[in-house]
Write a protein that binds this DNA or RNA. Structure first.
Length: 307
DNA sequence: CTAGGATCCTGTCAGC
DNA sequence: TGCTGACAGGATCCTA
């Protein structure tokens, strides 16, 4: 899905456009994607938009809230508001189509404008719950800290609890750290020079620290550039742009050459996910079968800044 | 407890 | 052209 940066961009976009708006009507086109009684939202005013990792929470008047999880292919589109149109989340034609379209699952008719929840694969959902119970939600309760709110020491300790698992699988686990998905996992592992399949138990403290800083860096950069929205979806000539190309070094760049060393970027499968990396910059460590192994691992390379 | 695989669903693309 | 299988910006459930 949309990962932390995309959801944060949506949170900001919605904050400017729907706070203060009232719900006139809710049309659930796919009941699978809506949990709870949608009618309780009718007449309520939207008073806040929060984010927890990849989850969005809209707060309404009278103590009602709604969680939105976009999962793989969800998107949120605002049309007809006084504060301009907006679309964010999974980039697809829904950003620009006339809505509702085939992928529209829920329509929120506001006192001014409409908000569409579109989702090709129907993995995402909206869930109405009392505001008081948001923090008790299973997913939110178990969610790890935001990347900016954990120390390198604590991050390292958490990684060490999963000795045998590939480091990529560990950082994708939302209980370890919130918000990392497939794109930012690959990108941050590239920036920190760690092989995605490396056993977490083999990741040193200094590598864990580099990795944490890299996660923050790629996410900050993506949020600043506006994530994936309709603005960067359609190029001037009408063709579809790929916002990933704006910042991704390795994601979906298999076959291209590494921007740092020129080696060919490979794509493999780790933790059931497509994984992109540079075999030279992200070298797999030697198996330490005996103490000599320690000396076979040369310097980790003096790489400076990269973009 | 951890780790890995199947699973939910629709759509697209490569290969035959 | 039509069919088939693999895969996809996620997370959960099931099994070992």
């Amino acid at each position: 899905m949309p990962e932390l940066p995309e959801v944060e961009v949506i949170r900001r976009g919605l904050s400017e456009r729907i706070i203060g708006r009232k719900v006139r009507r809710v049309e659930v086109l796919s009941s699978k994607n809506f949990i709870g009684p949608e009618q309780v939202l009718v007449g309520k005013e939207i008073i806040g938009v929060r984010r927890f990792g990849k989850v969005l929470v809209l707060d309404f008047s009278e103590g009602i809230s709604m969680m939105i999880h976009l999962r793989m292919t969800g998107q949120i589109v605002i049309r007809g508001g006084f504060h301009g149109e907006f679309a964010g989340g999974h980039p697809s034609e829904g950003f620009v189509d006339e809505l509702p379209n085939k992928q529209t699952r829920v329509i929120f008719v506001l006192d001014e404008g409409k908000m569409f929840f579109n989702d090709q694969r129907k993995f995402g959902f909206c869930k109405v719950i009392p505001t008081a119970e948001v923090m008790e939600d299973e997913f939110i309760r178990k969610l790890g800290p935001e990347p900016w709110n954990i120390s390198a020491e604590d991050f390292y300790k958490k990684l060490q609890r999963h000795q045998a698992a590939p480091i990529k699988a560990v950082i994708l686990d939302q209980k370890i750290i919130a918000g990392v998905g497939n794109i930012y996992a690959d990108e941050s592992l590239f920036l920190s020079g760690i092989y995605p399949g490396e056993k977490a138990g083999n990741v040193s403290f200094s590598e864990a620290e580099k990795l944490l800083l890299a996660i923050r860096e790629v996410m900050d950069k993506s949020i600043e550039s506006g994530g994936s929205t309709m603005k960067n979806y359609v190029k001037a000539d009408g063709t579809r742009g790929d916002y990933l190309k704006l910042f991704a070094n390795v994601f979906r760049r298999e076959g291209e050459s590494c921007p740092r060393c020129g080696e060919e970027i490979l794509k493999i499968r780790i933790a059931g996910r497509g994984t992109h990396f540079c075999p030279k910059c992200q070298e797999k460590k030697m198996e330490l079968e005996n103490s000599e192994g320690i000396f076979q691992r040369g310097e980790s390379g003096e790489h400076g800044e990269m973009r």
